[in-house]
Design a protein around this nucleic acid. Structure first.
Lengths: 157, 157
DNA sequence: AGTGAAAAACAATGGCG
DNA sequence: CGCCATTGTTTTTCACT
């Protein structure tokens, strides 16, 4: 579904992606609209899928998740079946936060978050590498994260 | 502040990061706890910083953001001042969703989301490369995103 | 397009077992 | 920690412009 977004919508979305705990009244103040209109627009944006959902942003450290890694994967035998199995596995792995196919020499880029380096090693050796489709894996550990907000750029950010 | 998380907390956090729109009563049903207890635990987790905040997850396509890229950056002259400037710029750029320092041959890995390839090219040529600290930039475009949820692995790890 | 107010739903406390 | 009641807030719907 494609929706035409006006200035109010964009400002509303920007505010909500920054802080979804804002009440409709507070949002109304920010974007100069009444609470009832905010409610109506919000419902529309949710129904249209522009707003996919609401999430609590958690602190990985507090949960003992100290290692973030970017793992580049190249596939070997490009059989459709093996590739499909690889994709399904990746989608099902909770440690994989993101998975993309890339241009360039890498086939897949995974972002993985785990408790420690041992857990990362286990994932690579026991889950990734045994896959028939997987030819090579190369991982880089994030030493420091400057920014992690994953906020989309919406004009007024 | 470090907090001891029990099984209820972990389940609560897992449910909330998946869907922060759930009411306390609904959460209580999921984790087998009364709504009032859910409310109390939630406040504690928010205060302790385990819950950093609440965010609306938006659909990039619906907002005209069609290009996701991973940009590897190597710094040249490692003067402290230049590196500091680079870091501040990156933090301030709304198109940069994530920025990490990495092990391996790359100094920085940026995840960038923009409307189109032209916008990406503009960012690289007009913002990144003119920085004194920046020696080399290498970008990979995400052709397909299999997974993008950025949900932390809780319990199932 | 928008507003404002009433009704319904919900959150947050406190007391008690 | 469950349960219940209360109070205050918030959302949503309706009438209206």
């Amino acid at each position: 579904m494609t929706v035409a977004l006006d200035g109010f919508d964009v400002k509303l979305l920007a505010a909500l992606q920054d802080n979804a705990a804002l009440t409709n009244a507070e949002l109304g103040e920010i974007i100069s609209l009444s609470a009832s209109q905010v409610s109506r627009r919000r419902s529309k944006l949710e129904e249209a899928g522009v707003i996919r959902g609401y999430r609590a942003a958690l602190d990985p450290e507090a949960l003992g998740l100290t290692v973030t890694a970017f793992v580049g994967v190249t596939l070997g035998a490009h059989s459709k079946e093996n590739a499909r199995k690889f994709r399904n596995m990746v989608k099902a792995m909770p440690e994989v936060q993101e998975a993309h196919t890339l241009t360039g020499d890498l086939d897949y880029m995974l972002k993985i978050v785990v408790a420690d380096l041992k857990a990362l090693s286990n994932i690579i050796n026991d889950e990734l590498l045994p896959q028939e489709a997987v030819h090579h894996v190369r991982s880089s550990i994030a030493m420091e994260t400057l920014k992690d907000d994953n906020l989309l750029p919406l004009g007024s950010s």
